[in-house]
C-alpha cells in the first residue's frame, strides 16, 4: 500500500444537467506507484479530464458531483476531506498543469508573481525568499534569463515558455503527484518534445509521480510506464506500456494503435489510415451491455447483455472485454 502515491477506487462522477444525468465516470479504479508515470488515454469526452478534476476536487459543482468512490492519497481519503484541507493539498502535494498554456495563466499578472503565489501560499515564505525560489524554479524549467523573465506578462512569452512557467508553478512546492492534462497537445512538435523531456527530467530529479492525460499514444510510449485506456467513463484496459503496445487486448485499444501510421508499412491503396468506425456514444444514452459494442468489429451476443468486468490477463494486464472471458 505504501508503494502507491494515489489509489482511486470505484470513482463515480456524474453531471446533473437539464437533459439528464451525464455519467462521466462510472467506476474508475486507478493506482499510481511512487515515481511512476501513468498514462491515461482515450478520445475526447471519455472522462480523462473529469478524472483529473475529480482528484483535485475542482469539478464544477453544480452540475457535477462525485457520487461514489474513494481517492486514497497516502492514508487519507481525499473525498472525506473538507475544502480547507483540500486547499492545502492542491498546488502543494498534488498539482496540475493544463492543455492550454495560452489561457491558463492570468493575462494581467506578471508570471513571476503567479509562480511566487503558490510558493508563498504553501510554504509561508517572505516575499523576497519566494522571489528567489521563483527565479530558481524558472531557471530549473529552462527559462533563459529567469530574473528578467519573471517580470514578463504571459502575452510576452511563447506557448512553450508559458507551459514551462506552468510546470514551474506546478512543481514549485515539490508535489508528490503531478497531474498533466494534455500538457503538450497545444504545442508544435519540436516544443512538444522539449516539454516532455523536461517533464521526464524533473520527474527523475524530484521523484514526482505523474498522471499523464493524453490522446496521443506516441506521448504515452515516450513517457509512461503504465497505461490505462478509457472509454465512455470506464477503464477498458490497464497494462504495462510494453504489454499494451505488443499485445493490446481490447478491440478499442487495437483500433487506437492501428490508426497510427507506421513507417515500415506501405501506404494503403486508399491512402486512408485505418480508423475506428463511429463516434463516442452520448453519455446520456449509453447502450446496454458493453459501451463499445456498436463500434466493435468483434462484438458477440454476450456484449449486448452486461458490461464486461475487468478480466485479469496476468502480470497486471487487465481488460474489460468478453473476448477474454
Amino acid at each position: 500500500m505504501d508503494d502507491y502515491v494515489i489509489q482511486i477506487k470505484n470513482l463515480h462522477t456524474h453531471f446533473f444537467t437539464d437533459e439528464g444525468i451525464v455519467r462521466a465516470l462510472e467506476g474508475i479504479d486507478l493506482d499510481i506507484r511512487k515515481g511512476e508515470t501513468l498514462g491515461l488515454v482515450g478520445e475526447s469526452g471519455c472522462g480523462k479530464s473529469v478524472t483529473a478534476l475529480s482528484i483535485m476536487q475542482l469539478i464544477p459543482q453544480p452540475p457535477g458531483r462525485i457520487v461514489k468512490g474513494e481517492i486514497l492519497f497516502g492514508r487519507q481519503n481525499l473525498l472525506a476531506l473538507g475544502e480547507p484541507q483540500m486547499r492545502h493539498i492542491r498546488g502543494n502535494s498534488i498539482s496540475m498543469i493544463f492543455q492550454e498554456p495560452m489561457t491558463s495563466l492570468n493575462p494581467i499578472m506578471r508570471i513571476g508573481r503567479q509562480v511566487a503565489e503558490s510558493i508563498r501560499l504553501h510554504q509561508g515564505l517572505s516575499r523576497e525568499k519566494a522571489r528567489e525560489q521563483t527565479v530558481a524554479m524558472l531557471a530549473k524549467v529552462g527559462i533563459p534569463d529567469p530574473l528578467m523573465r519573471a517580470e514578463n506578462y504571459p502575452h510576452q512569452m511563447s506557448g512553450g515558455m508559458r507551459q514551462r512557467v506552468m510546470i514551474a508553478m506546478a512543481l514549485s512546492c515539490n508535489p508528490e503527484l503531478l497531474i498533466a492534462d494534455e500538457p503538450s497537445t497545444a504545442l508544435d512538435v519540436t516544443i512538444q518534445a522539449q516539454i516532455l523531456n523536461l517533464m521526464n527530467r524533473l520527474k527523475e530529479h524530484m521523484g514526482t509521480s505523474i498522471l499523464l492525460i493524453t490522446h496521443d499514444l506516441g506521448v504515452i510510449a515516450e513517457m509512461a510506464q503504465t497505461v490505462a485506456v478509457m472509454y465512455a467513463g470506464l477503464i477498458v484496459e490497464y497494462a504495462q506500456v510494453g504489454h499494451l503496445f505488443r499485445q493490446p487486448a481490447h478491440p478499442y485499444t487495437r483500433g487506437l494503435i492501428n490508426s497510427i501510421p507506421k513507417m515500415e508499412q506501405p501506404v494503403p491503396e486508399s491512402r486512408r489510415l485505418p480508423a475506428i468506425p463511429g463516434t463516442v456514444p452520448n453519455l446520456l444514452e449509453l447502450p446496454e451491455g458493453c459501451f463499445f459494442r456498436n463500434r466493435c468489429t468483434q462484438s458477440m451476443d454476450a456484449c449486448a447483455k452486461d458490461v464486461p468486468p475487468l478480466m485479469d490477463l496476468g502480470s497486471g494486464h487487465t481488460v474489460r472485454c468478453w473476448l477474454h472471458a
Binding site: L58, R87, S95, S104
Partner: peptide, 14 residues
C-alpha cells in the same frame, strides 16, 4: 469560466 481561474484554484487558493 476562464482557464486561468481554474489554474488559480488548482494552486490551492480559496
Amino acid at each position: 469560466a476562464e482557464d486561468y481561474i481554474r489554474t488559480a484554484r488548482a494552486k490551492g487558493l480559496s
